[in-house]
Design a protein around this nucleic acid. Sequence first.
DNA 1: TGGTATATGACACAACTTTGACACAAGTAT
DNA 2: ATACTTGTGTCAAAGTTGTGTCATATACCA
Lengths: 219, 219
Amino acid sequence: MYMQRILIVEDDEAIANLLYMDLSDEGFLCSCASDGKIAADMLENESFDLILLDIMLPEIDGYELLEYIKPMDIPVIFLTAKSSVKDRIQGLKMGADDYITKPFQSGEVTARIEAVLRRYGRKSNELSFADVTLHLESRKVYQGGKEMELTVKEFDLLAELIQNKNVAQYRSRLYEKVWKEPFAGDTRTLDTHIQRLRKKLGWEDYIKTVFRIGYRLEG
Amino acid sequence: MYMQRILIVEDDEAIANLLYMDLSDEGFLCSCASDGKIAADMLENESFDLILLDIMLPEIDGYELLEYIKPMDIPVIFLTAKSSVKDRIQGLKMGADDYITKPFQSGEVTARIEAVLRRYGRKSNELSFADVTLHLESRKVYQGGKEMELTVKEFDLLAELIQNKNVAQYRSRLYEKVWKEPFAGDTRTLDTHIQRLRKKLGWEDYIKTVFRIGYRLEG
DNA sequence: TGGTATATGACACAACTTTGACACAAGTAT
DNA sequence: ATACTTGTGTCAAAGTTGTGTCATATACCA
């Protein structure tokens, strides 16, 4: 699976490390630059899908670097201190795509990144979990390199599960997302499809039932 | 603590007020807009963490407004009449994150809002107390690193206790929060569940009974 | 200080709900 | 026609939850 590359431009080593680890966890390929000059060098030699840019930097500051990045058509998310309203506004005016205020929760950063990438149409069109990969455009499914035959409903259900891995999803929500109609709740439809997925993929252990709630893809 | 800001877009004043009061009670910072035009103006000038959006609106209707909101990456929950199945489906298709049918119970709205915010990574999804951690979205529970099996009611009750640690909570309040129905008061239901939690977690010392009042999680 | 009324703890049990397994029929596509 | 997909019903198994009973604890009052 193709990994999104992210450049973290941040001189505070603690924050840079935190970001690096969180984002690596989430499946991004990260590089760090501790000042604007190093960042500019890296941008010359490698390509990135997104840049996280601290404003306060030694040597070349964030604004200057933003000017340099602009013609490259790479989305930029600013990192600013919570207090500096002026920075946030100026950042957006200068063409940043979003900003995140420090300190931040890890989930927040991922969410923003994915949102920005999606807006730029650079979000991967593949979903993976364990040994399975879904190609969303071709709607092909591979398990351990071998192609699998999934029906439409199975495919959609699996995609929904993977997109929300490790989240206990209510049956109603799951049903409505996949079937696009209100959940009546007195039939075995959803359950049956879950069983079929489990069986076909051998995922009895990955797809957990959360009693009285729904299902969770776990791993 | 940082308060989440919610924009309520609803032309029925009674419903808007109801929502406003309920959500303010629950610790959200609310603003109301009575039609789509006003809402759009407010969105230009303020930032929100979530939008509650009625579909039937004068001037600009909900669907149109949703298009406008979409690029802003703010989660949207639709408010629809119970009967209009078509609306609900179209809402989901257009990218709403959830919907709530009118008339609704107050608890329902809060629950959905928290779920959506959590999904967007804009709300903490963990609760901890002593040696126990609850993951709200996966609904997993760990005690000292080991996963515990809690039932739905046990989980909800524990979450409610932790969220109000060191507060003596009336049994009626506790019951109504977790069971989402009025408290009759002449059964052993709540007590039994408290005992089960105590036993399962070995929390005989943490969960104190406040005689004639209710319970308090203490530490 | 002891008695009384009330509230809670402990626990077992039955009713109830939910889910898994599976077969079948109706609907669709090939 | 044929093969495949999909939804639904039935039944069994598994798990959850409410309630009653009785013992014990607490507050209050004489």
